[in-house]
């Protein structure tokens, strides 16, 4: 019954990251793509929010978008998983619906 929530904007620019986290139910999956990956860098202002989301949701970032922005996979908030576009497709298929927080 899970929902995949995608976030494509930096939390420093838009409220979509916070909105997405505010509308998950336990078991949902959150995927940061495009500028959304900025929220997953360890030590950033929003890192604690990512950590608390991990208590009842899975959080993923799209590796190609991380690499494009010069963020190393080792520099992510602990518990955040990296996937490629194929993994994105798998998440869409595994979840019952996708909500894009545009």
């Amino acid at each position: 019954m899970a929902t995949l929530h995608t976030v494509n904007k930096s939390p420093f620019e838009r409220s979509s990251f916070i909105s997405a986290l505010n509308h998950t139910v336990p078991g949902d999956k959150v995927l940061m793509i495009e500028d959304g990956v900025i929220s997953a860098r360890k030590g950033n202002t929003f890192a604690d929010l990512v950590s608390s989301a991990l208590s009842d949701c899975s959080v993923y970032v799209l590796a190609p978008d991380l690499a494009a922005r010069g963020i190393a996979e080792g520099d992510l908030v602990e518990g955040v998983q990296t996937i490629d576009y194929g993994g994105f497709v798998d998440l869409v298929a595994e979840c019952d619906r996708t909500q894009s927080w545009l």
Binding site: T3, N22, T24, V25, D28, R97, Q99, S100, L102
Partner: peptide, 18 residues
């Protein structure tokens, strides 16, 4: 409430977001 909105989202077949 926000919690109910989250629940409403979790009950859909298709979500269209613009």
């Amino acid at each position: 409430s926000r919690a109910d909105m989250a629940k409403i989202m979790s009950e859909q077949d298709v979500i269209l977001s613009f």
